[in-house]
Simulated assay, not measured.
Amino acid sequence: MLKEIRPAIALTILFTVVLGIIYPLGMTRLAQAIFPHQAEGSLILRNGTVIGSGIIGQEFVRADYFHGRPSATTGTDEKGNTIALPDNAANSMGSNLGPTSKALIERIRSDAERLKGENPGMAVPVDLVTTSASGIDPDITPAAALFQVPRVAKARNLDPARLQALVGQFTRPRTLGIIGEPSVNVLQLNMALDAATAKMVR
């Protein structure tokens, strides 16, 4: 019986070492050599300090910042209870509410009404009231960013045209011109907004 078991044990150890250690380490080293920024998490620095990642959304709630998509991610409090924790990268998830869910319909209706109050007469972009599958989407559509210009411009006392130009500057086109949709990274846009405001103050 040992004769039959020995090859199985040897192969298990071999494949564990090759596929569980050597291959992952090799791929990690290769990725770090070819795509160092992406392999390290697409980290975004300000004055040498990490303030976020280009691939993980952050929750912005102040009126003087552009807001990202709603997030359905959750976390736990000190007692271990599940609580809403938007843009929780440790618990990436979407909402499990279906299109006929009353809770989902009411939440979207409430968000849409609030947004209409910020920019009357404009259609609310769908990504400002719907969550992404990951719950941590860092990007919004250019339409969603432009929709927020009046609110941000009022809060910062800036010319809306200047903010529209800033949105255009940070709008990324489709990859290779055909893949995906144009998008705006919310964190990078808000960083540029802070920088532009600081220059005006000086």
Rank of each mutant, 00 (worst) to 15 (best):
T16Q: 07
I44K: 00
R6E: 11
R69P: 10
R6V: 15
G52D: 05
M27R: 08
A10K: 15
P24M: 01
D64M: 04
V61H: 15
I9N: 10
N47D: 10
T76E: 15
P36I: 10
L45E: 10
I51T: 05
E59M: 14
I34Q: 02
R46W: 09
A33T: 11
R6L: 14
G20V: 09
I5S: 15
N47T: 00
T73V: 08
L43Q: 03
A63N: 11
I55G: 15
P70G: 05
A8F: 12
T76P: 08
I56D: 09
G48F: 02
L25V: 10
V50M: 07
I21E: 01
F35C: 02
I13D: 03
S71M: 06
I55N: 14
F35I: 04
G26Y: 01
H67M: 13
S42F: 08
Y23T: 00
P24F: 04
V17H: 13
H37V: 14
T76H: 15
A72I: 02
T76G: 15
T12S: 14
G26E: 06
N47M: 01
R29K: 00
A39G: 04
L11G: 07
G41F: 00
A39L: 02
R29V: 13
F35G: 07
T73M: 04
G75N: 06
V61M: 12
E59V: 08
Y65D: 11
L14T: 15
G54M: 07
Q32G: 15
G68P: 03
F15T: 05
F60M: 09
T12L: 12
L30T: 10
A8H: 05
T12V: 08
T73L: 02
T73Y: 02
P70Q: 05
I9Q: 13
Q38G: 13
L19V: 07
R6M: 10
A63E: 05
F60V: 09
A10Q: 14
S42W: 00
G57D: 04
T73Q: 10
R46N: 11
R46E: 14
S42G: 01
A10Y: 13
M27I: 04
I34M: 07
G54C: 06
T73H: 04
F60K: 11
L19H: 02
